[in-house]
Design a protein around this nucleic acid. Structure first.
Length: 895
RNA sequence: GGGAGUUUAGCUCAGCUGGUUCAGAGCAUCUGCCUUACAAGCAGAGGGUCACUGGUUCGAACCCAGUAACUCCCACCA
C-alpha cells in the first residue's frame, strides 16, 4: 500500500465526520461525569457562514473537544435564531420576486411563507458548520421560534409584566422606515455624512410688536415685498420637518434676540404661527442661535416640547413619506421632500443660504435605512432592577469576562442602562401577548381564551370579538436572552434532568459587539428566572478584519468564502489558520496565508507519519536511543504543562503555538532525526514502541485543533488494533509525568553544540555530507559522551572524544562553559580569529561590568530578593569562567 | 464631548509580580542544500530608538505623568 505524498483532507473529512455522527460521539446525555456545556450563539437563520462564525465556532469546537478528552461530558448545543427583522426582510424580498406584496397577505398567510422560507434555507448555516468539524450535539438543535421556546418567551413576558417590569409607553424610538419597525439604540449605526445646513427665515408676527403697530399677517407671506422684513433665521439639516415645528427656541441670555421674547413667528410656506420660547438648552454660538423645535421628529425637541407643553405634530407616515399634517408635499418621501422644500423656500425668499455640513446620522444596522426618530406606542422592559445583579455577577467574578478589559465597558453600560424597547412592528416572531379592549384597556394573557377570562373580570360583557391582539412581535433578543435556559427546557419544566445537569453552562464564546444586547441580558435572565448565572466564562473573540484592518463584510467583498478556504486548505488547516492569528479579545488581521501555514502543518504531521510508518523492526537490535527517548518524554510533558496552562487562561493561540513547536521542532526536527535509522535499515523494538507512543500522544494533543487529520492517523494499523468505537475524539489526554529538568537543560546545550557545528559548516563551506571530528574539553561537568550518538548523528561527526587540553589548529567554540574543537586542515586566519575572540571578550566584559555594578551596589544588595542576588552571582561566575577561556585562547594566539 | 483599549522585528503577536544573556515566537526575508518522511522540506543567518518626552527606582518594554497616532464603545449642537 502506498501512502499519499501529501495529506488529502477532502475524503478524510467527510469520512470521519459521518463516522463520528454514526457513533454518537457528539451526543450528550446527563450522567455521573462532570458536565461541560456550551450553547452556541445562535446564528441568524438567514445567515451564511462568514469568517466571524468560523473563528467563533472553531474556538468553541476546540474547547468542547478538549473537554471531551479530559473526561468531561461535553455538550455543545447548536441552533439558530429567527432574527425577526432580517428574516422578515428576506421573506418580503422573496415574495416581491414572486409578485406578492406583504400588504396583500393576512398574517397567517405571510407566516406560512416565512416558515416555508425558514424550512428551506434556515439550516444552511448549520450544515456549513459541519464542514468545519463542529462537534455539536445535533439532536439538540434548537430554533428560537420552536414551540417550547416561543412559549417560554410568552411566559416570561407575562411574568415580567406581573412584576411591573414590562410597561407600555410613548417613546421616541429609532424608526426604520424601510422595515417599518422600531430598532433598538444598539442596532443604530451612526455614520458621518455630508449634509446641507439650510438657513431658513421665519417671519415674525407683527401684532405682538411692542410698538403696537399692526401689520397685515399677509405681509409675512412674502418677505421680499415686505417693507420691514422682520424675521429670524434658523439653521436645520431637515427643512422638510418645518411643517412639524411647534416653536422656535432661543437662549434667554442671548442678547441678540431679546426683541423676540414673547413673540410668535410664521412657519414659511404653510404660514402656521408658532411661539418663540426661551430655554438655556439652546447653544448661543451654534448656527444662528435660534432652534426650531420639532417634538415629533427629534428626541431633544420632544423633551423640550414636553417641558414647554408644546403640541406634537407628526408629519411622517410609517414608510417615511409626508402625511396630510404636513399640509404640503403629502405622500412625498422625506428625502425627496427635502429637495423640493428647499426649492419652495427659495422661491418664497425664505431660504437665506445653504452650507455644507458634516454630521452624524443613524442608520439601521439591518436595512441600512436612515433612522427616523419617531414617537410611538411601544412596549418596554425596565432594566434598572435587573441590571444590578447582572453587574454584580461580573464585578464579583462569578462570571469571568475574557479578556477582563471588557469589565469596565460592561460596568459603564450597566450603570447607565436604559429601558429596553421590546416591541417590533413585524409579524415574524413571538406576537405580544396583549389584547386590547374596546375601552382602550388591555389584558396580558397566554392566549386568546385566557385573555377573555381576564377581560371578563373587568367587564363580564366582553366577548371574544371585543379583543384585539397587539399586532407587534417582541424583539428577537427577547427570545435569545432566554437561550441558555430554554434550550434545556428550563421554563416548561424548571426541574428537569437536563437543566439541572447542564446549567449553568461553562463557556460562552461570542463577539464583543453583542456583549450588551445579548450577553448582559442573558445574565439578567439567568438571575431573574433561575437565580444563578447562565455561564461561568465569557470568551470574547475579536472582529475578523482583513490585512488592511477593515472589518470583513459582504459589502466590501473582502471576506473569503469559508467553504472555499476549507476546500483549499482543509478544515484542519483553516482551523489552525484562524487560531494562529486570534489573540483573545483583540481583533484579528486575517490573511489567507495563515490557512496555508495550517495546511502546511497538517502536511508536516502527515509526513512524520509516513516516516514512522515505513520503518521495519528488528527485534534483535539493542536500543541505542534511550537518551533521546527519555529526553522527548520529558520535553513532551513539559510542553503539555505549558499547553494546559495556556488553555486554563484561554490563550488558545498560544496553546496552539506550543503544540506547533512541540510537533515541528521537538518531535520532527530533533527527536525523529535523533532516532531515525539509516535508510533501509531496521529500527529496534524499544525505540519503535516509544516513538509510536509519543506519536499517539501527539495526536491526542493535536486533536482539538486538527480533528480530522488526527482521527485519520489514529486509526492506522501503525497504532495497533483499535476497537471500532476507540476513536481519537474520545481518547483521554495524556497525563503529565515527571520532568527530568537536568536532562532537558543538558540537551539544550547539546543542541547548541550541534548548532555550532552546523554553523561552522556553513561559514567554512564544509558540505553537510563531509564527516567531521569533534573534541570537547569539559568544564561544566556535563558528560557529553552520553550524548555522543546524538551529536554524531545530527552534526555528522565521525569521531567524538573528550580532551583535557586545548587543541591546536582547530576551529573552536564555546557551549555553556565547555570548549569544543573541530580539527580542520584549513589554516586558521589568526587575524579573523583574534577579532572574533576580541568581540566576544568585549561583550562579556560589558556584561560582567553590569553584573558587577549591581553586586557592588549596596542598595541592590539590601533591596533585591536573595534569589535575584544569587542569580546575579551565578551570572558573574559564569561570565568570568568564559572570559578566562577566551583570554587563554587570545594569549595562545599571540604566541 | 465622556469612557475604554492599542502602539514591541517587514507582518501577526508573546513578554504573567519591575530583576535569568530580556528584547522573544511564528510567518516573511536572505544564504547554502533537490541529504530516500516532507522543496508545502532541511540547515544557517540577518532584522527592533519596546510610539515619544519626562519621572519613580539600585534596576523600567513593564510602574507614574504628559504627548502623539490608531481602534472601539457611549452621548451628541439643530
Amino acid at each position: 500500500m502506498s501512502i499519499a505524498k501529501t495529506y488529502l483532507p477532502k475524503e478524510t473529512e467527510e469520512k470521519w465526520y459521518s463516522y463520528w455522527l454514526k457513533h454518537d460521539f457528539f451526543k450528550s446525555v446527563p450522567d455521573e461525569r462532570e458536565p461541560y456545556t456550551i450553547v452556541i450563539p445562535p446564528p441568524n437563520v438567514t445567515g451564511v457562514l462568514h469568517m466571524g462564525h468560523m473563528l467563533n465556532n472553531t474556538i468553541q469546537d476546540v474547547l468542547v473537544r478538549r473537554a471531551r478528552m479530559k473526561g468531561k461530558n461535553a455538550c455543545w448545543v447548536p441552533g439558530t435564531d429567527h432574527a425577526s427583522i432580517a428574516t422578515e426582510a428576506k421573506v418580503v424580498a422573496m415574495l416581491k420576486e414572486r409578485g406578492i406584496s406583504k400588504a396583500d397577505l393576512t398574517r397567517p398567510e405571510f407566516l406560512a411563507y416565512a416558515w416555508e422560507w425558514k424550512e428551506k434555507y434556515g439550516g444552511i448555516i448549520l450544515e456549513q458548520l459541519k464542514k468545519l468539524g463542529a462537534s455539536c450535539d445535533w439532536d439538540r438543535t434548537k430554533f428560537t421560534m420552536d414551540e417550547d421556546l416561543s412559549e417560554a418567551v410568552i411566559d416570561t413576558f407575562i411574568h415580567l409584566h406581573k412584576k411591573g417590569l414590562i410597561y407600555r409607553g410613548i417613546r421616541m424610538v429609532n424608526w426604520d422606515p424601510q422595515s417599518k419597525t422600531a430598532v433598538s439604540d444598539e442596532e443604530v449605526i451612526r455614520k458621518e455624512v455630508n449634509q446641507k445646513l439650510y438657513y431658513i427665515r421665519y417671519a415674525v408676527k407683527s401684532e405682538s410688536r411692542e410698538d403696537g403697530k399692526t401689520e397685515s399677517t399677509d405681509a409675512a407671506t412674502d418677505l421680499q415685498t415686505s417693507e420691514l422684513p422682520d424675521y429670524l433665521t434658523i439653521a436645520t439639516t431637515r427643512p422638510e420637518t418645518i411643517m412639524a415645528d411647534a416653536a422656535i427656541c432661543i437662549n434667554p441670555n442671548d442678547e441678540r434676540y431679546v426683541h423676540l421674547h414673547g413673540k410668535s413667528v410664521y412657519i414659511p410656506l404653510i404660514h402656521r404661527t408658532i411661539p418663540v420660547i426661551l430655554d438655556e438648552y439652546v447653544t448661543m454660538d451654534f448656527g444662528t442661535g435660534c432652534l426650531k423645535v420639532t417634538p415629533a421628529h427629534d428626541l431633544n425637541d420632544y423633551e423640550l416640547g414636553q417641558k414647554h407643553k408644546l403640541p406634537v405634530i407628526d408629519i411622517l407616515n410609517d414608510d417615511g413619506t409626508l402625511n396630510d399634517k404636513a399640509q404640503i408635499l403629502i405622500g412625498v418621501d422625506r428625502f425627496a421632500a427635502r429637495k423640493k422644500i428647499a426649492v419652495l423656500l427659495e422661491e418664497a425668499g425664505a431660504l437665506e443660504k445653504v452650507e455644507d455640513y458634516k454630521s452624524q446620522i443613524g442608520f439601521s444596522e439591518r436595512t441600512d435605512a436612515v433612522i427616523e426618530p419617531k414617537l410611538s406606542m411601544q412596549w418596554f422592559c425596565k432594566m434598572g432592577e435587573m441590571a444590578k445583579p447582572a453587574l454584580d455577577y461580573v464585578l464579583n467574578g462569578e462570571i469571568k469576562l475574557i479578556p477582563d478589559k471588557f469589565i469596565n465597558t460592561y460596568r459603564h453600560w450597566m450603570e447607565n442602562v436604559r429601558d429596553w424597547n421590546i416591541s417590533r412592528q413585524l409579524w415574524w416572531g413571538q406576537q405580544i401577548p396583549a389584547w386590547y379592549l374596546p375601552n382602550g384597556e388591555f389584558v396580558i394573557a397566554k392566549n386568546a381564551e385566557e385573555a377573555l377570562v381576564e377581560a371578563k373580570l373587568k367587564n363580564p360583557a366582553f366577548t371574544a370579538q371585543d379583543l384585539t391582539q397587539d399586532p407587534d412581535v417582541v424583539d428577537t433578543w427577547f427570545s435569545s436572552w432566554l437561550w441558555p435556559i430554554s434550550v434545556f427546557g428550563g421554563f416548561k419544566d424548571p426541574d428537569n434532568a437536563d437543566i439541572n445537569y447542564y446549567y449553568p453552562t461553562n463557556d460562552l464564546v461570542t463577539a464583543p459587539e453583542i456583549l450588551f444586547f445579548w450577553v448582559a441580558r442573558m445574565i439578567m435572565a439567568g438571575h431573574e428566572f433561575r437565580g444563578e448565572v447562565p455561564f461561568k466564562n465569557v470568551y470574547l473573540t475579536g472582529i475578523v478584519r482583513d490585512k488592511l484592518g477593515r472589518k470583513m463584510s459582504k459589502q466590501l467583498g473582502n471576506s473569503p468564502d469559508p467553504l472555499d478556504l476549507i476546500a483549499q486548505y482543509g478544515a484542519d488547516g483553516v482551523r489552525v489558520g484562524m487560531l494562529l492569528c486570534s489573540p483573545a479579545g483583540n481583533d484579528l488581521m486575517f490573511d489567507e496565508s495563515y490557512c496555508k501555514q495550517g495546511s502546511g502543518f497538517a502536511n508536516k504531521i502527515w509526513n512524520a507519519f509516513k516516516l514512522v510508518k515505513g520503518w521495519e523492526v528488528d527485534d534483535t537490535l539493542a536500543n541505542p536511543n534511550s537518551i533521546a527517548i527519555d529526553w522527548f518524554a520529558s520535553r513532551f510533558d513539559q510542553a503539555l504543562g505549558q499547553i494546559e496552562d495556556n488553555f486554563a487562561q484561554y490563550r488558545l493561540s498560544e496553546a496552539l503555538m506550543d503544540t506547533y513547536k512541540l510537533v515541528w521542532d521537538d518531535f520532527c526536527a530533533w527527536y525523529l532525526e535523533m532516532i531515525k535509522p539509516v535508510y533501509q535499515h531496521p529500527i529496534d523494538r524499544a525505540t519503535y514502541t516509544a516513538t509510536i507512543q509519543f506519536f499517539e500522544n501527539i495526536l491526542k494533543v493535536l486533536h482539538p485543533f486538527m480533528p480530522f487529520l488526527t482521527e485519520e492517523l489514529w486509526h492506522d494499523e501503525l497504532f495497533g488494533e483499535r476497537a471500532e468505537k476507540e476513536c481519537c475524539i474520545v481518547a483521554q489526554l495524556p497525563v503529565i509525568g515527571e520532568i527530568n529538568a537536568r536532562l532537558l537543560s543538558e540537551v539544550e546545550t547539546v543542541k547548541e553544540v550541534i548548532g555550532a557545528v552546523r554553523n561552522t559548516r556553513q561559514t567554512k563551506h564544509i558540505a553537510d555530507k563531509e564527516p567531521l571530528e569533534l573534541l570537547v574539553k569539559t568544564n561544566s561537568g556535563i558528560n557529553y559522551l552520553q550524548y555522543q550518538a546524538i551529536i554524531a548523528r545530527l552534526g555528522n561527526i565521525s569521531r567524538f572524544s573528550e580532551v583535557t587540553d586545548k587543541v591546536e589548529g582547530a576551529i573552536s567554540f564555546l557551549a555553556s562553559t565547555d570548549e569544543f574543537y573541530i580539527p580542520f586542515k584549513e589554516e586558521i586566519n589568526p587575524v579573523a580569529e583574534r577579532a572574533r575572540l576580541e568581540k566576544e571578550k568585549e561583550y562579556l566584559l560589558g556584561f560582567l561590568k553590569s553584573v558587577n555594578a549591581k553586586l557592588s551596589n549596596e542598595r541592590f544588595m539590601s533591596n533585591a530578593k536573595p534569589e535575584i542576588i544569587e542569580i546575579e552571582q551565578r551570572k558573574k561566575a559564569d561570565a568570568e569562567a568564559k572570559l578566562q577561556i577566551i583570554q587563554k585562547a587570545l594569549d595562545d594566539l599571540a604566541d
